[in-house]
Structure formats: C-alpha cells, structure tokens
C-alpha cells in the first residue's frame, strides 16, 4: 500500500500542527504560580490528551487538504487462463459468406461471424492476456499482448471492415510467433490463426518459422473457415499431380504446420456453429493456471482524514464547553 498526496506544497503547513503541543485552547487564569497547585495525574493526562487530540486533528486536516490517497496499483492473483496471440485474416474473401458470395439477407460474412464469436470468447476469458495481429498482403501487428480487454474488443470489432487483397499466411505466422516470444516467460503461449484460406509459404519464411517454433514453443491452433466448394485442410487430391502447394495450399500448410514440432491442432469450420465449437475446444484446451495482475483503483483517504479531524475538534469543543471560566479580579 503506497500513500501519496496530490498537492505536496500543502504539507509545508504540517509543522503548524505542532502548535497545540505548546498552547491549550483555554483562557489563561490569572494565577500567581502553578507550584501552588498540587500535582494531579488526571489533570496532567487530560492536558496531554487534549494537546495530542489537537495535534492529530490539525495534522489530519493538513493531510486531507493535501489530497491524501492510496495510489492505484495492482495485485497479483492466480486464476485460470492463457496467453494467446490471435492472428486474424483480413483478406477480402473474409468479407464473403461461408457460401462464398456477398452476404445477403440474414447471411453473415465470415469476418462478421469470426468477430461475433471472438467477442464471446473474450467475454468468457477475462483473465487472458491476448495480443492481436492481422495479416493479408502484409502482416500487421495490431495490439501487443495485453490484458486490457476493452482495447482487445476494439481490435476484434475492427475485423469486419473490408479486407485487403492477399493471404500471406507465412509472414503473418512469423509475426505472431515473434509476438508470442514477448509473452511472460514460463507461460506457454498459444497462437490462434483464424483464416479462410492459405497460401504457398516462401521457403525462407518456412525456415524462419521452423527457427521461431524451436525458439518459442507455442501451442498452435488453426481455425480454418472453409468456404463451400473449397477442398479444405483434409481434402484428398483427386488427380495425380494435383498434390502441390499451389493447387492445394490449405492441405500443404496443414502438413507444414504439423512438422513444426510444436503442439498443433486444426479445426475446419463450415459455418458459424462449427466455428463456435472450435473456439470452445480451444478455450478448454488453453486453460492453465495463470498469474495475472488485477488493478486496484486509487482510494481517496481525505474523507477518513476529515472525519478524524472532525472527531478531534468535537472533543476539543466538549472540553472547551466544560471549561470553567476563571474568576477575574475586578479591573482597577
């Protein structure tokens, strides 16, 4: 717990709080000498007590005026969750429906479905630390790994805007791996690739991905939004000679990701319901004990300080009212 004040300059008044140690708020009696009065413990205690009460009241008043508060901070807690990097496809085909055409009527585009389900995913996992990256023709870091879910929701909200041309999944993965590298040491981060297609991965990028996978052991998930008519991840070649990365990029990307030597699972979804099932499966798999920091807001302590001062002044006032007026000698 750290205490702080808003306007430290007010604390310059603090020494004045010692004044009551020297003076009492009672009228001086015209009495020749105190030595005439027998020492009395109760009187001494009342004297010291009233001085102390006044010092405390003044000191808390000065602190309250300076704006005493407990600093906002965070406490570390343990919960269940994961560190995840979402790698989202923002190519133009994501704007089509699962049937592969412009969404019309009550149809939902693939990106809108992904957005809706990812928002649900975020809502259910408030303690996850998540980073967002997008890829299309070029990989784009969107948000660094963070636990600010408001910002994450804003990034997921942005994915159903019109996309760009291509699907450079290789460089996108390289970016996601490098973002996962910055995650908390010891936590095994997960990379969730959401895309509706694949592309041939450049051999240099393949090597870079193998290196990255060896360096950062991430858990990799590929949520493949399959459009009607496309062969998909698990499609078998129909004719000999068709089994090339150019003709069947999804199948070959799947095979390549399987050779990275990291835990990898692919989900093929042909509709919003299947996407939901896949996201649930990922959510169940990626739940581990995780340490997260919960923010503690600033707490105003001026109120209690004012109350202390008021209580002190109330005591002084009672003492004052109990004061007996010294008899005065008639003025000459």
């Amino acid at each position: 717990m750290t205490l702080a004040v808003d306007t430290p300059a007010v604390l310059l008044l603090a020494p004045l709080a010692l004044l009551p140690a020297l003076v009492l708020p009672f009228a001086a009696a015209d009495h020749p000498s105190l030595t005439e009065v027998p020492p009395d413990r109760v009187s001494l205690a009342v004297d010291a007590g009233l001085r102390l009460v006044a010092v405390v009241a003044l000191a808390s008043l000065v602190l309250a005026l300076a704006g005493l508060h407990r600093l906002a901070g965070s406490v570390e807690r343990e919960g269940r969750g994961a560190e995840i990097v979402l790698l989202l496809d923002r190519s133009a085909s994501m704007d089509n429906s699962f049937a592969g055409r412009r969404p019309g009527g009550d149809e939902e585009s693939k990106s809108a479905a992904a957005r809706r389900l990812l928002l649900q995913f975020l809502e259910r996992r408030p303690h996850d630390r998540i980073g967002v990256a997008a890829f299309s023709t070029a990989p784009m870091p969107v948000l660094p790994v963070t636990d600010h879910h408001e910002a994450l929701r804003a990034a997921v909200h942005a994915i159903d805007r019109p996309g760009l041309a291509h699907t450079d999944v290789g460089r996108g993965l390289a970016l996601a791996f490098s973002m996962a590298e910055g995650a908390t040491p010891g936590s095994a981060p997960a990379v969730v690739l959401v895309s509706d297609g694949a592309a041939v991965i450049d051999r240099r990028v393949q090597d870079a991905l193998r290196d990255a996978a060896a360096r950062t052991p991430v858990h990799l998930y590929w949520l493949y939004l399959r459009t009607q008519g496309s062969r998909g991840i698990f499609g078998e070649p129909q004719q000999p000679g068709e089994d090339t990365p150019q003709a069947m990029p999804e199948r070959h990307l799947h095979r390549f990701l399987g050779t990275l030597g990291i835990p990898y699972r692919a989900f093929e979804a042909t509709g919003a319901l299947a996407v939901e099932t896949a996201i649930e499966a990922i959510a169940t798999l990626e739940t581990r004990p995780i340490r997260y920091r919960e923010p503690v807001p600033r707490r105003d302590l001026a109120g209690p300080a004012y109350a202390t001062a008021a209580a002190g002044v109330l005591l002084l006032l009672l003492a004052k009212l109990a004061e007996r007026r010294p008899r005065r000698a008639a003025r000459p």
């Binding site: 967002v132 784009m140 870091p141 969107v142 948000l143 660094p144 600010h148 994450l152 990034a155 909200h157």
Partner: peptide, 22 residues
Amino acid sequence: FLLFEPVETCANFAPIDGAIAA
C-alpha cells in the same frame, strides 16, 4: 485500414501506446 476502433485512452494507454510504437 482500421487496426482498432476508438477506446478510452487513460485506461488503455499501454496497448494503444504499444500499437502506435509497432
């Protein structure tokens, strides 16, 4: 090309700052 929609800047300063830096 929109990366993320507007979010409150004080509470979410760290991710916004990180995103601009990237």
